[in-house]
């Protein structure tokens, strides 16, 4: 088999994942695109390992490690997304802009400064209710 076939497929999958990371708004869809990119790297590792006939099988061992790290990454990533959703009520990456520069003039329509106080108020009310219960 030509090495060009798996290499080109890996490139195309990686660029698909790149598009997904840049264009998607939902955080979980961004995580899916990251998985696509990691899988493209795995395909490259396996193809080059089979081509080079490495005696240590470094490519396949690294592929297994990448799969395990991707599993850990998706677990932590989903926990973070769920935490953000619980605190903010949204998982859109466009609306998580606490670290952004403040808008220079006028109010940014995407700014969630209106929604944040109500979230905090509801949170505090829930906490107070739990403490009294």
């Amino acid at each position: 088999m030509h090495l060009a076939y798996p290499a080109v497929l890996a490139v195309l999958l990686f660029c698909t994942g790149l598009y997904g990371v840049l264009a998607r708004r939902n955080a979980i869809l961004v995580l899916m695109s990251v998985e696509l990119m990691l899988n493209a790297v795995n395909l490259n590792l396996v193809a080059f390992d089979v081509w080079l006939r490495d005696t240590l099988h470094a490519g396949q061992a690294l592929t297994l490690f990448t799969i395990a790290i991707a599993a850990a990454e998706i677990g932590i990533g989903l926990a973070i997304v769920l935490l953000v959703y619980r605190n903010r009520g949204t998982s859109d990456v466009d609306r998580l802009r606490d670290l952004a520069d403040p808008p220079s003039a006028g109010q940014d329509p995407m700014d969630d400064s209106v929604a944040a106080p109500t979230d905090n108020a509801a949170d505090q009310a829930r906490r107070a209710r739990r403490q009294t219960a």
Binding site: V11, F14, C15, T16, L18, Y19, L22, A23, R24, D92
Partner: peptide, 22 residues
């Protein structure tokens, strides 16, 4: 609202990267 507003820029970046890498 599954896609954000920077979709054309993302498409351009992905197509350019795919072209160069292929």
């Amino acid at each position: 609202d599954a896609d954000s507003g920077n979709r054309p820029a993302a498409l351009a970046v992905a197509v350019a990267a795919a072209g160069v890498l292929v």
